[in-house]
């Protein structure tokens, strides 16, 4: 072997580049479509559960979000990046938090507000302060409160005749009426866990959403700290502040009801709008859980996940301001601390 070839080979081995040296094979595109895949079981379940109206709403939400993103980027003369899936995911998540059978303009207007107002006005992907899907939902909730709380009967309703959501029954008629509607505690938990109850399109099946969430945690896209802390906080607080005095609550019901599971796994974990550090994430998730309980037990709305995440979104810059990661090389460096 000649010396020159040998030299060439060593040169190939010694590639000199500036840091960072660790290469993670991820991209925005990969992450976004992985999240969409994680949502798929719940989406397919909702199509079976609610039928055609769910499909219409989901398509309207997702596709209009893509269209608005392309349009905005064209007008702003930016590179059109609808392929990365972030707009589709945002529209899909928004539609999953709407009741099935809303008129089609609701998801479309929601997508407009989410994409144009909450995302691109603040500089596009990566800069938004608030979760765009939740801003869209909060806006349509304020604009059409009646449409947003009209629950059409489910296609799979066999023994459950009511068309109200469990949290609605709890808010308007109380806990005993809720148990009566479903028959027994076990029946209630079963309906919530499997998703055989009324509610927003994508939020009903706790089982499938948790499966999707675990898939995301396994993929390293979601930090398990946020969903665990948020759902745990809701469970503990609802147990402590039960309907008939301390320690009499029903944590299992509250942990599975409403949009908590989808919110905790898919919305609160949004990388842009949640804090950077582990400790910050714990504070963020605990705050969101506490506000959710506050709104559910005392507020005017039956469900508070959407608002609680939005409220913690606006606290996120303050959390990041005061809880900063330790500089590498400084004292007490612990690599375990931050991913």
């Amino acid at each position: 072997m000649s010396v020159e070839i040998e030299r060439e080979q060593t040169a190939k081995k010694l590639i000199v580049s500036s840091s960072p040296h660790i290469f993670a094979n991820t991209s925005v595109k990969k992450i976004m479509w992985t999240v969409v895949i994680a949502l798929l079981p719940a989406v397919i379940f909702s199509l079976w559960h609610f039928g055609l109206p769910a499909l219409q709403t989901l398509l309207a939400g997702g596709l209009s979000a893509v269209a608005f993103e392309a349009l905005t980027q064209k007008i702003l003369k930016k590179r059109i990046t609808v392929n990365d899936g972030s707009a589709f995911l945002c529209g899909l998540l928004l539609a999953m938090c709407l009741p099935p059978g809303v008129p089609l303009f609701v998801p479309i207007v929601g997508s407009f507000i989410a994409i144009v107002v909450a995302k691109h006005s603040m500089g596009g992907l990566g800069y938004n302060i608030f979760n765009p899907a939740h801003i869209g939902r909060a806006a349509v909730m304020v604009s059409w409160p009646v449409l947003m709380t009209t629950w059409t009967p489910m296609t799979t309703a066999v023994d459950v005749t009511t068309s109200a959501t469990p949290l609605n029954i709890l808010k308007l008629q109380g806990y005993d009426a809720l148990i009566e509607t479903f028959g027994s505690h076990a029946e209630l938990y079963k309906a919530l866990f499997l998703g055989l109850r009324n509610g927003c399109i994508g939020e009903t099946s706790a089982l499938l959403l948790i499966l999707g969430g675990i898939f995301l945690i396994y993929k390293g896209i979601v930090d398990w700290v946020i969903p665990v802390t948020m759902i745990g906080t809701v469970g503990i607080l609802t147990w402590i502040f039960g309907p008939s005095g301390f320690m009499t609550g029903d944590p299992l019901f509250h942990m599975m009801a409403g949009g908590l599971i989808i919110g905790a796994f898919f919305m609160a974990t949004d990388m842009v709008t949640s804090p950077i550090t582990r400790l910050g994430k714990v504070i963020f998730a605990a705050g969101a859980g506490a506000i959710t309980v506050l709104i559910r037990l005392l507020g005017g709305y039956p469900e508070g996940v959407c608002y609680s995440i939005l409220l913690m979104n606006c606290v996120t810059p303050i959390i990041d301001r005061f809880i900063q990661p330790k500089t590498f090389g400084g004292k007490e460096v612990s690599l375990k601390n931050d991913k």
């Binding site: 107002v117 909450a118 302060i129 608030f130 801003i135 909060a138 806006a139 909730m141 304020v142 506000i291 506050l294 709104i295 005392l298 507020g299 005017g300 709305y301 508070g304 959407c306 608002y307 609680s308 939005l310 409220l311 979104n313 606006c314």
Partner: peptide, 13 residues
């Protein structure tokens, strides 16, 4: 506006 929307959650409390 977004902040005000988030504070809507407290309405009726």
């Amino acid at each position: 506006g977004c902040l005000a929307l988030s504070f809507f959650g407290f309405s009726g409390m």
